[in-house]
């Protein structure tokens, strides 16, 4: 069986406290539900959730979607957004968890990385270094979502050309965001990675591509 590893890197900095973080959790639940309704995803998708604010936490290591339980997300009162450090930790997890092919092991599909942040990276130097690290991991696709008014889509553009903005941070928007992420995952779980061009389904109305 070939696994499709999906890493969700979620900003849980202080500004996410309250409704936004609860909405993210509701969105995650909707995403997992929809993945479980897709027979291909149910067989292949493995999810990991990594959260970051000042510190990075591997909240859920790579877990088959059928065993996945949506975790609690607890943002601190305040603090910096260490996106660079978080990306480096994602790379470390990928090195540790994603299986490459060899004669005796069937390799995984190329991993998918989804990043959601509502601020700008406060560790500029680490972020610079992380851009190159992420590039070297050869993700199947990297999708970045800048949520709310304070997010910096231009910064995310340096990581990937698939950057989207989410203007409102209520549960409806997050739910449609995560449903779209899950349909993007489903598309990828059935496509073969010969070409680097991954086609994503059109995003919902609340989610706007940054061109």
């Amino acid at each position: 069986m070939r696994r499709l590893p999906v890493y969700l890197l979620l900003d849980t900095s202080g500004s996410m406290r309250g409704e936004p973080i609860e909405s993210v959790r509701a969105g995650l639940r909707a995403m997992v539900d929809s993945l479980r309704q897709d027979p291909l995803a149910l067989d292949s998708v493995h999810l990991s959730i990594i959260t970051f604010y000042a510190y990075v936490k591997v909240l859920v290591p790579l877990t088959p979607v059928e065993q996945f339980l949506v975790p609690e997300l607890v943002p601190p009162d305040s603090g910096p957004t260490h996106l660079g450090r978080a990306l480096k930790d994602v790379c470390r997890q990928v090195d540790r968890e994603v299986q490459k092919s060899n004669a005796s092991v069937k390799g995984d599909w190329r991993p998918i990385l989804f990043i959601m942040t509502d601020g700008a990276a406060s560790d500029k130097q680490a972020f610079e270094e992380a851009i190159e690290e992420v590039r070297r991991r050869k993700f199947g696709v990297v999708i970045a979502c800048a949520a709310g008014a304070k997010a910096k889509p231009d910064e995310l553009r340096r990581l990937t050309d698939r950057v989207y903005t989410l203007e409102t941070m209520d549960s409806t928007s997050f739910e449609s965001l995560f449903r779209w992420v899950s349909s993007s995952i489903e598309v990828n779980s059935s496509s073969i990675g010969v070409t680097s061009e991954v086609i994503l389904p059109p995003p919902p109305v609340d989610v706007n591509p940054v061109l």
Binding site: R2, S101, K106, G107, V194
Partner: peptide
Amino acid sequence: DGGAYAGQTRF
């Protein structure tokens, strides 16, 4: 012809 990841092959 295999690559490091699943689905990578030659045509």
